[in-house]
């Protein structure tokens, strides 16, 4: 009687599989990095919010899940590096969406009293897109950060 050779994983197959897995992991990473460029549609809105200046990238940390199962409620955290003193503080935080029918999501006003420039909320997202947070400082400078969110079930589309 001939016994079939058990289907064992060879070293070659294991290596190829491992490389494939690594490749799959790298693809979304690269996509997220190339999304650093600001969506063109938002530029005029951002200028309006900052009083004409285009914000520099930095000092703002925007935390959003990389993948949101539902666009109806996505948790968002904006944190701005600032000493929050009367001399140097964050005056406003703006949140923009690339694809929502209304691109402005929220505007928060802060002052030195806050002690820490951080806000959390939950937002709606109409599909996979970039979200941008802009902080306007009391000295007139503006800073921003953006994050890409993959949304599996979008909000604000017909029938939702």
């Amino acid at each position: 009687m001939i016994y079939a050779r058990p289907n064992r994983l060879s070293r070659r197959r294991a290596l190829v599989g491992l490389l494939g897995c690594l490749g799959c992991l790298l693809v979304p990473l690269r996509k997220a990095r190339s999304a650093d460029a600001l969506p063109e549609k938002l530029a005029p809105l951002i200028r309006q919010a900052t009083g004409g200046v285009m914000p520099q990238v930095g000092r703002v940390t925007l935390t959003l899940p990389a993948l949101a199962e539902s666009g109806h409620s996505v948790r968002l955290r904006v944190r701005v590096e600032s000493p929050m003193t009367p001399q140097a503080h964050v005056r406003q935080i703006h949140v923009f969406s690339e694809k929502n029918p209304r691109p402005v999501i929220a505007r928060f006003s802060l002052g030195p009293r806050a002690g820490r420039a951080e806000v959390h909320t939950r937002i709606r997202l109409a599909g996979t897109q970039q979200v941008v947070a802009v902080a306007v400082m009391n000295d007139g400078t503006a800073w921003m950060a953006s994050a890409e969110v993959v949304v599996t079930a979008a909000a604000c589309v017909e029938g939702s």
Binding site: N100, I105, A106, F108, A117, I123
Partner: peptide, 15 residues
Amino acid sequence: FPGIAANPYFSFFTT
């Protein structure tokens, strides 16, 4: 604006 989820939740800091 309409981009805020139903039953709006906020967290902020103060002194």
